[in-house]
Every structure is written in C-alpha cells, then in structure tokens.
C-alpha cells in the first residue's frame, strides 16, 4: 500500500512538473495594463499644485507679437511689475496682435515661428484689442475699456494691490496634473473650493505656457531696427483648454465653501496633447478661473508642467 502511494506521489509530482510551463508569445503583454487612452502610465509625471497661495495673483495678459517693435518695452515693464511684487503679479505673453504676430509668409523670412493661438485670438477679438502693446489686467475694465495700455499698467496694478479686499483669495485650488512624457498628454484633475460668494457662471480654464523660447523679436529701442535674433520669450501662451479660451463651467452663483471636484479618469478630467516642438520641461501649467458673466479673472496660479521642469 505504501509503495503504491509513493508511486502515485511521484507520478503526481512528475505530472506537476510537466504542466508547469508558461509560454509567452508577447513579451510586452503586461504593458497593456499600463497603457490607457492617455499612454503608458509608467511614463506619468505627476505634479500637485502646492502653491498654497496667500493672496490673489493679478493676471496681465500682454498682447504682443514678435514683429511688434514696441512690445518688448511692455514685456520689460511687466517683468518689472512681477519682480516688484513677487507672487502677486503674473504676465502671460499672448502672441495675438494681427500682423505683428503672424509668421512670415516668405519661407526665407526671419519670423517663421507661429506663436498665435486660437484662445489668444478669441480674447483679442472679444476684448477689442486693436493696438499694441496692450494688456488685459484681470480682464477688468479700466477707464471704460478692458484694454489697458502699457502706460496704465503700473497704476492699475498698484491700485489693485493696495485694495486688501481685492487681493483676497476667491478660490482655493487643490489639483493634480499628470503629464505623460511618452504620449505628451497632460491631464488636469481640478478640485476647486469657493472661498467667497460670487454671482454668475464661473469657468475654469487651463493655460500651457512655455519659457525660454529663443527666436527673433523686433525691438524699436534699438536704432538700427534689426530684429534681436536670440530674444528669449518667457511665459508664452501655447494653448488654452478646454474649448480654447472658454474652459469648463465649475460653478454658478457659488457660495463660500462650495466645491468642484473631478475624479481621475473621469469624463470631467481635462486633457490636452502637447505639440512635439514644445519643450515640456520648460512649460508651466496655469489655472485661470473667471466669471463668464462679468468676464473678470477671479483666480490665477501657475506650476511647472513636470516635476523637474518649469
């Protein structure tokens, strides 16, 4: 009996050995688990906004163009305002200024780069900006016009900065940005809390800004009027989403404490695919929250697109 049992045991083991084999036809089969419609998740670079803002950031949308000779002066002024008021002022370069921002049609022309955006053009038309340089400052009217000439920027900004009520934060944003370095898809998962009551429809829009772009720029401050070949463009608006400048509606007449939340991989997740020529490591992501009824920008903040970037 014992011997029979041992035979059975041995045969059982041998049979077990023969059946213990995995043949793999596709060495990369497991990658399917990681590959979603936004790319291979192992290439995800996640940035959580941890700015922990203590006050409102004043947004200057500087309408400019690489063929606009007077625009670099406005850019420099904007930079001066930012430097003088760290963390309270931010300038976005919107290269939509008609002839001043169009790329050269001549293939041998000096201005081949195309920095115009659909969002910038929509804003330029909506706010009737026809001469340059010019800016929108929190998209608020100033002397009965949304367009603020550069001569008024400092006065406008200082007025706002001196108003504590104005500089109070209107929203707290705790969001997550996931950028996939392989697919170049950026996913934004916003979580917004209203800190005060507002009337009107509140929209959330994401800007992608790029820094360190080197390309020619006209500058009238140089008498020989030849373009500066290695001009460095910073905070240049590359894209705005969803729906270009419009964004997504997050509140209507919110009260203090109201929350807008999005789940990962949900329909409300905001997605955008970066173009190959954009240097992702030099890009920033900016959140713009505005009142679609009054047009006013109520909240603005930025963060690097990637953990090692910005």
């Amino acid at each position: 009996m014992m011997k029979k049992l041992l035979w059975i045991l041995n045969l059982f083991l041998v049979t077990g050995v023969f059946t213990s084999c995995d043949e793999v036809d596709d060495p990369y089969e497991h990658l399917d688990e990681f590959i979603t419609d936004t790319g291979d998740s192992r290439f995800n670079d996640t940035v959580m906004n941890d700015a922990n803002l203590s006050s409102r950031v004043i947004l200057i949308e500087d309408f400019t163009g690489h063929k606009c000779p007077n625009c670099p002066a406005a850019t420099d002024l904007g930079k001066q305002l930012v430097d003088d008021n760290p963390g309270q002022v931010f300038v976005v370069a919107v290269h939509n200024s008609g002839n001043f921002s169009e790329p050269d049609s001549d293939p041998d022309g000096k201005f081949q780069a195309d920095y115009e955006t659909e969002a910038g053009e929509n804003l330029r038309v909506e706010f009737q900006i026809a001469s340059f340089p010019a800016g929108l400052i929190d998209r608020q009217e100033w002397n009965n016009s949304f367009r603020v000439g550069m001569g008024q920027w400092e006065n406008n900004v200082n007025t706002k900065l001196q108003n504590p009520d104005y500089m109070e934060l209107n929203f707290r944003v705790n969001s997550t940005n996931i950028y996939n370095t392989d697919s170049r898809i950026l996913r934004v998962v916003p979580n917004v809390t209203a800190l005060d009551s507002e009337s009107g429809e509140i929209y959330f829009v994401v800007y992608i800004l790029e820094n360190g772009i080197v390309s020619p720029q006209e500058d009238s401050r140089f008498p020989d009027s030849t373009p500066i070949k290695d001009y460095i463009h910073n905070h240049l608006l590359r894209a705005s989403f969803p729906l270009d400048d419009i964004g997504t509606k997050i509140f209507e007449n919110p009260s203090s404490g109201d929350q807008y939340m999005t789940e990962f991989q949900s329909m409300d997740e905001l997605r955008f695919e970066l173009k190959p020529e954009w240097a992702a490591q030099n890009c920033e992501v900016a959140y713009v929250i505005y009142n679609r009824t009054s047009k006013e920008v109520l909240h603005f903040e930025t963060m690097p697109l990637m953990n090692s970037g910005g």
Binding site: V17, F18, S20, C21, D22, E23, V24, D26, P27, Y28, E29, H30, L31, R42
Partner: peptide, 14 residues
C-alpha cells in the same frame, strides 16, 4: 515571480 516592469516574463519555465 515576474516582477519585471518592462517585460512579461514566464514565471514557470519547463
């Protein structure tokens, strides 16, 4: 055990 992140490896090899 297959704990390789890059490849699907056969855990049992005969």
């Amino acid at each position: 055990e297959d704990n390789n992140v890059d490849l699907t490896l056969p855990e049992n090899v005969l």
